[in-house]
Computed example of a mutant assay.
Amino acid sequence: MREAEALRAAYDGVTAALTPLSPMELLAPTRCHGWTVADVVHHLTSDAQRALVALATPADGPATRTFVTYWRSTPDPAPDWASAERAAAASAWAGRRAASIAREPGLLVESWAETSAAAVQAAFAAPHAFVATQGHVLSTPDLLTTLATEAVIHHLDLLLGLPAAPDPAVATLDGLLALHGGVRPPDWGIEDYLLKGSGRLALSTPDRTALGTSAGLFPLLG
């Protein structure tokens, strides 16, 4: 299955990036505000654990979400920046506390490597057409695409200057833009697209000009 191959590539890329890091490097900051590399590793491991549960949780079709609409399940409310900032800080703090349970950062990498490998194996063996996760029903290929998307973006959070990301992450962003008649500016590279689409980089004035009315959709991944 193409989506399982994409998940394996995304997870293997994260593992390869983490394996040579020293314990002190695992405590370095990332693009996720308030999180160290170790904190992001813990978050990714939780996502791989969710994958294992979802792949073992068959559901009746049809799907209630696709790999595109999964990221925009409800309309965005009018922004309350103070409340949003408090919620983001609380989420970041909870992630840090959960990751700190490990005796040392390297154990988190070992847990990630084992769990992600199991999730990939389950992805290739997945027998169900539809699965349930986080209150939604997705087709199995769409679930795997969302997992690969998140892994690739967090890979960019961990380290800069990474190789080109797998296509599923870009396909998700393209799908979100297409829902509203938008297209990716042709001069954007894969890394810029992922960082801007996920809100890691702010749009510049030329970006907003190139996107036109689609600029209001960013960040694409909620």
Score class of each variant (00 low, 15 high):
P168S: 11
A16Y: 06
T209R: 14
L21A: 06
S116Y: 03
A169N: 03
W35I: 08
A151Y: 04
A151C: 10
D12L: 06
T15S: 07
P186W: 13
G61W: 05
P23H: 11
A113L: 02
L162E: 14
W71L: 05
A92C: 15
H154R: 03
Y193R: 12
G34E: 08
Y70T: 05
L52Q: 04
D192Y: 13
R86T: 15
F130M: 01
V183G: 09
C32K: 06
W188K: 12
A148L: 05
L162S: 14
A4N: 09
T172L: 01
S116R: 01
L159N: 10
D39L: 02
R97T: 10
G181D: 06
G161T: 12
T149C: 14
R8Y: 06
K196M: 12
G13V: 08
H42T: 05
T69H: 11
L21E: 02
Y193G: 10
A17K: 07
V152W: 05
V41P: 00
D157C: 01
P58N: 06
A92G: 15
W81D: 13
R96W: 11
S214D: 15
W35C: 08
L156E: 11
R86W: 12
S100R: 14
P105S: 09
D60Y: 06
A164F: 05
A171K: 07
L217K: 14
G13T: 08
A210S: 13
R65I: 07
T115M: 06
L52E: 00
A119N: 09
P219Q: 11
V152C: 12
R72Q: 13
S46Y: 01
L194Y: 07
A84D: 06
A118K: 02
D157S: 01
R208G: 14
F67E: 02
D187C: 04
A28S: 15
R65L: 12
T145Q: 01
S83C: 10
T74Q: 15
H43V: 00
A89Q: 12
L44H: 00
R31K: 06
A51D: 04
A151E: 03
W188V: 15
A9M: 08
L220E: 11
H128T: 07
A126M: 01
A59L: 02
A63M: 06
A99T: 06
A78W: 08
I153G: 03
W71Q: 01
A98W: 02
P29C: 09
A148R: 00
P206K: 09
L7V: 00
A164T: 11
L211V: 13
H155P: 06
F218W: 11
E5G: 12
T115A: 05
A132N: 09
A169K: 04
V109W: 00
T15P: 00
A132C: 12
H155W: 13
A132G: 11
